[in-house]
């Protein structure tokens, strides 16, 4: 009797594992099929090489090694990677990333963005042979370098075909809409959930002084008066702890009272806490600029959502 119960449990466990894997594989193949169905086997003189590759979070390192960390920091789910070959011409590499949700896809896109364009998808950028765009939960890269007239056409053609397979549009993170629009350089907006990207425009620290984690939303943006940072925490207690840690270690004083502080590089900065969010300004040339900008940032942020109620 005991053996039959034991066998039942063992077989039951195997059955559950089988069903789980079958479900995962079905989802994976659905993702790849979705895009393979719109990718041609030939485009101009380039031919699709086989096999195509698919990567998950645990093996993305096999494809882009250290670069995988960037994608993992934005919630990467799956990658479809295909290559088109054409004799002596440079290959065309197509990489389609499923980032889980549109906020992550948008954030990843902002990581490379230099200008605000949307020739394809919900935001795009073309750099000498490299087309990047995002739409819904997907971030797409099509690269052929060095570029030629024919490769440029092929890259855009492939991009449009991929876009056609993405029916829905995704939502931009709500935090972006709470950024003061006046004097803002929209192309400078960076949205992220990992502390390493804090130093994108201005070196703040090698340490995670603001205690940013995957439950924290951050936005960096350039204004005429300085660099703005807004960090939204899941809980007010976390925001308070992070703010105290930051002010103590960054400004070397536990409470700067929200007043501007001049740093050793001569630039001015200030930070405030409002509910579960921290608002900071860095890299300002003048003390008055900090005061003006942080007041306006806080006012706009508060008026456009109050406390950030989003569940992460």
């Amino acid at each position: 009797m005991k053996n039959s119960v034991k066998n039942f449990l063992i077989y039951g466990l195997f059955a559950l594992l089988y069903l789980h894997n079958a479900d995962s594989n079905a989802q994976n193949s659905k993702f790849t099929e979705k895009f393979l169905s719109v990718l041609p086997t030939e485009i101009q003189s380039w031919r699709l090489s086989s096999p195509t590759d698919s990567y998950l979070p645990d093996n993305l390192y096999d494809y882009i090694d250290g670069g995988a960390e960037l994608y993992l920091s934005y919630g990467f789910r799956e990658l479809l990677s295909v290559t088109y070959e054409a004799g002596g011409a440079p290959p065309i590499r197509v990489d389609i990333f499923d980032m889980g949700d549109s906020q992550n896809a948008f954030g990843l896109f902002t990581h490379s963005r230099e200008t605000v364009e949307a020739d394809i998808g919900q935001g795009s950028q073309y750099f000498m042979g490299l087309l990047l765009f995002w739409k819904d939960r997907y971030f797409v890269s099509v690269l052929c370098s060095p570029e030629s007239d024919s490769s440029r056409q092929a890259v855009w053609d492939l991009g449009r075909r991929i876009e056609s397979a993405i029916i829905q549009k995704g939502k931009v993170p709500g935090l972006i809409n709470r950024l003061l629009p006046q004097d803002l350089d929209p192309a400078s907006i960076k949205y992220f959930k990992h502390p390493v990207w804090l130093n994108t425009y201005y070196f703040i620290s090698n340490e995670n002084l603001l205690q940013i984690d995957q439950e924290t939303e951050c936005v960096l943006a350039r204004y005429e008066q300085g660099l703005a940072l807004i960090v939204v925490y899941a809980e007010e207690t976390k925001a308070r702890s992070a703010f105290e840690n930051f002010t103590q270690k960054y400004y070397l004083q536990a409470d700067h009272g929200g007043e501007p502080v001049q740093l050793p590089d001569g630039r001015w900065g200030a930070s405030r806490i409002t509910g579960s969010s921290v608002i900071a300004v860095f890299d300002a040339r003048e003390r008055e600029h900090v005061n003006t900008l942080i007041d306006r940032l806080e006012k706009y942020f508060t008026e456009h959502g109050g406390r950030h109620e989003k569940k992460f």
């Binding site: 882009i64 670069g67 994608y71 590499r93 990489d95 990333f97 490379s112 950028q125 750099f127 000498m128 042979g129 490299l130 990047l132 890269s141 690269l143 370098s145 060095p146």
Partner: peptide, 10 residues
């Protein structure tokens, strides 16, 4: 660097 291959001749 930009993109998954962190490269552009620009």
């Amino acid at each position: 660097g930009v993109g998954p291959h962190h490269y552009n001749p620009k």
